[in-house]
Nucleic acid binder design. Sequence first.
DNA 1: TCATCCGCTGTTTTT
DNA 2: CAGCGGATGA
Length: 782
Amino acid sequence: MKANYLDELNEQQRVAAEHINGPLMIVAGAGSGKTKVLTTRIAHLLRNGVDAFNILSLTFTNKAAREMKERVEKILGGTEARNLYIGTFHSVFARLLRAEAHRLGYPNDFTIYDSDDAKSVLKTIINEQNLDDKHYKPALVYNRISAAKNSLIGPEEYQHDYAIQQEDMRANRPLNGKLYDMYAKRCFKNGAMDFDDLLFKMYVLLKSFPEVLHKYQHKFKYIMIDEYQDTNPAQYEIIKLLGAAHENICVVGDDAQSIYSFRGATIQNILQFEKDYEDAKVVKLEQNYRSTKSILNVANEVIANNKGQIEKNLWTDNADGEKIKLVRTMTDNEEGKFVADTIAEQKLRNHYANRDFAILYRTNAQSRAFEENLRRKAIPYRIFGGLSFYQRKEIKDFIAYLRIVTNPQEEESLKRIINYPVRGIGKTTIDKVSVIANEQNITFWNVLERANEFGFKSGTLEAIENFVIMIRSFQAMLGKHNAYDIALQVGKSTNIVKELFNDKTTEGLARYENIQELLNSIKEFTETPTEDGELVESEKSLGTYLQQITLLTDADKGNDEDSDVVKLMTIHAAKGLEFPVVFSVGLEENLFPSGLSINSREELEEERRLFYVVITRAKSRLFLTYANSRYRFGQLVNNESSRFLEEMPEKYIDRSYAGGGNVNRSPINNGGGLFGGNGNNMFDRMQKKSPTAPQQPAGPRPAARPVPNAAPSNHVPSPNFTPDDPAIMEPGMEVEHQKFGFGTIQTLEGPMNNRIATVNFPKGGGEKKIMLNYARLMIVKK
DNA sequence: TCATCCGCTGTTTTT
DNA sequence: CAGCGGATGA
C-alpha cells in the first residue's frame, strides 16, 4: 500500500476518508472527487486493521463498480483488493441469493429475468386471463409491479392497499393486483426472479431468516453506498437491516444529481440520513476539480431553480474556460451534422482525440442523426446503451438453451426454443402443453418429459421426445464440463451455428458473428480466474455465467474504454463520467424536459437535475444544441427551445457559434457554411420556408415575439447574406435585413445579450425596432 | 405449421 | 420510421 495515500486529498476529502466507525454521509458535488475519497477510505480502513472481507461497497452501475475495484487495486495492490465485496446492488444481491435462494423455495440456480422476459411472462398471463393486452399492456402492468416491489409491497398487500386500488380503478385497470399475484406465482414456478426481485427477495430473506441476517451483518461490518440519492425504499431497508448491527454505514451522494425517481428512487433517503442516524457525521465535498468556472457557474445557477436542496457551494480553482456554446439548427439531421463537423474541427484546432468527445442525449432514439453524420465523416464512435447485446434475438435464443440446461422449470425460455430451430412443434402444440401444465399443476418441462401420457400425435410426440433427449444430453454435461464446452455443444447439436453460418444475407452474417461473440465471451468467462470463491463454490459454472450476463448492460460489454472513439449515450448513462468536450443535444421542450415530465413540479425538477448532470459532465468545453424541428413518429414536428436554456446566466453563454443564438456563422470559415456547405445559411432557408412559422427564429423563447408585423416588402436577400455579430454593430452602419432590405442603424439600446436596434429601412417600411437576438442583420457598410 | 405481408402503434430515462 | 403482432395464404 502506498504510504502517502492520504496526502493527495484536500481537507474535507481527508476528513471523510479518515472516518472509520459510525455513520457517515458524504455530500459530494459533481466532480468533487468522491470516488477518490471512497477508494482512499477503503485503503484507510484496511490500514487500520479492518479485514477486506468485512467491507461491502455498493454502486449502481457495473462500470462504477469496476472503476472502484481498479482504483482500490492501484492503492492496495491486487491481492488484498480481491477480497472486497464491490458490486452493484443487483449483482451483489444476486450473488448472495445464489447462496441462499433455496431458503425461499427457489433453486439456487434461479434464472434472472430481464424486463423483456418479465413482460413476456406478463403477456402470457394476461392472455391466459382472456384480458385484452391492448388495454392491460404488459409494459404498464410491469411498471406497476416494479414500483410495488421497489417499495416492498407484495401481491397481497398490493391488493389490499386502498390507495393503490384506487389508482388502478381510476386507470381502469382494476385487475393489476391480481395480475401481480399471478405473475409472482408464475415467476416462482419458473424458478425465476426479475430485477426487482433481486432487491425484494433479498429483503424478504433478511427479514424472514434472522440467522441469515446475522450472518451478513457480521460479514459486512463496513458498508459503503455510492449514489445514495438514487436508492429506492427496498435498497434503503436492506441497507438499514444489514448495517443495523454496526452502523458503519457510509453513504455518498449528491441530491442535485438524483435522476432515477422513475425507478423508485427517492431523494428522501439522502435528505433524511441525518435523521435516521442521529450521530451521523456529515462531510461536504465542495471543490470541483473537473470543470471550468464557466461550466460550473452555469450548472450552479441552473440547479438553483430547484427547491429543497442540501445547501452547498460548489466551486472550482480551475480556469474560466470558454463560454458555453449554444447552437440552434433547423432539423435534427443538421444538428447531427453540426456536431460531427464540430468534432472534426475541434480535433484539428485543439488537438483532441475522438475519445475526448461525448454526445449526450435525453432519449436513445436521438442517436441516429449523430451516427449517420459521424459515419459520413469517418469519425469512429460507439453507442452505449440502447439495445443491449444480450437483448438481441439470436443471443436471447441461444441463452434460452443455456437457461433451460441449468433450470428446466423455466417456461419462458422453453417456449422460446422449443421450435427454434424449426422442429415441427408449433403454436398449437405449445398451447396444448401450457394448458396441460396449468391443469395438472406441473411445469411445462414436466409435460414435455411425460409427453407420451397426453395423447400427442405421433409426429409431434416424436419431435418432443427428441427435444427432451437433446436437452437432457446437455444437462448431463453439467458439473463435468465448463460453460464454454456446454455452449459449444448446444451450438452444434441444435444446428444453430451451422444454420446461421449458411445464411449469407447481411443480417444472417451479423447474427452469426454475434453468436461467435457470445461464445467468445463465455470462453473468456471460463478462462478468467475467479475473484473470490468465498460465498459461492463454483464461480465458473454455467449458472453463474447466466446470472451475471443478465445484469450486464451494453455499456459494460468489453473493456475497450480506452479505444479512441466518440461516445454516444443518454445523460442517464453518462452519470459519473466526465469528458473534455460534451455535446448536450436536443435541448427542446417536450424532449428535454420530456413532455411527460412537465406537468408536475417534482418531475420537472428531476429533468432539471438531469440538465445539471449533463452540464457537469464537461471538463473544458460544452456545446448545447437544439433543433427547430425534428422527426418524431416519422413526422416532422416543430419544437420550442428548452426552458432550461433560459435559466442559464447570459454572461457565460456564447450564442455566436455557428448560427446559434445570434449569428449564423462559423468562427472558422466565416461563412456559415458549417452545415451542408451549400452557402445557403440556415436563417435564410428558414425565413423562406415559413416566414410566420410558429417556432421562434432563434434563441430561447423570448418574452415578446420580435417578428415585425406583416407587410413584408418583397426584398430578396443577397445571395451572400451572412448575419454579423450584433456586438460589432454601431449606429450609422448600413445593414441588410432579410425581409426589410437595406437600411441604416439609427440607435442601439439594451444589454449586449439582448440588443435592440432601431433601423431605418427606406424600402422596407421605414423605422423598425429589431431585436438582434432574433432577427439577423448583415453589415453592408461601416 | 410456416412464411410473408400489411397495418398499427408507440418514445423517456435503467439495473 | 421502425418493429411487432396479427392475419392470410400455401
